[in-house]
Amino acid sequence: MKYIALVILMITPAFLFSQNNPSPAEILKKIDDNTISDSKVVISRMVIHGRRGERTVRAKTWQRNTSDSFTEYLDPPREKGTKMLKLGDQLWTYSPSTDRTIMISGHMLRQSVMGSDLSYEDMMEDPFLSSLYEGEIAGSGELLGRQVWIMDLTAKKDDTAYARRKIWVDKERYLILKEELYAKSGKLLKQVDIHEVKFIEGRWIAVSATYKDVLKEGDGTEMMIESISFDENIPDYIFSKASLRK
């Protein structure tokens, strides 16, 4: 559940569309359609390159559709056992050392997740681009040896976390290979670069990416997927507050 937004961004089925000139709305719709899976279980690794060196955080995430997820941190020892639960637009964290479950809301949502370049707000964001943004194709190019569309997206609503995005979309795989997130003022806030893509269980998945908060010192956060499985039968109790204390 830790990196919902990013994981969803990174996971795309390899539907090989043959349309030559789809409209921007169609491209966004296809990107969204390709991210949908009933459930998934992901073990991921985050290498955070902070101001005082780097550290690695590992976590296991159970995800049900796009709204609910449950994450348990596996490493480092200090974070082991810390859990997070997202149900719709609500987010809780559980700290085993204090046995407290805290709801994360308000300005806490802007805090960094485990010191990474991701904020809780990033995790809470609706992953469906087509419902949040209107897009236009700004051009074409090549990235990571793939033909891409370069698209400018503008938020439909004022309260969207990032008012503007620029995305580089693989023309064949409908996979975002690079992304820049902007504030309303036009200031670049965050940048995502995909490094490695793999074909797993019939889907093209970005298994390595760097997420960089450009307002923060450091060299960004590397995100890696160690294992992923789709359409797992995840019991409902996982997505309950009671499971935080287990």
Partner: peptide, 16 residues
């Protein structure tokens, strides 16, 4: 009272 803060490494710190 529970303190919710950030560790030196930016993680969320929760301490009773």
């Amino acid at each position: 009272a529970t303190l919710i803060s950030s560790t030196m490494f930016g993680s969320m710190a929760i301490y009773n």
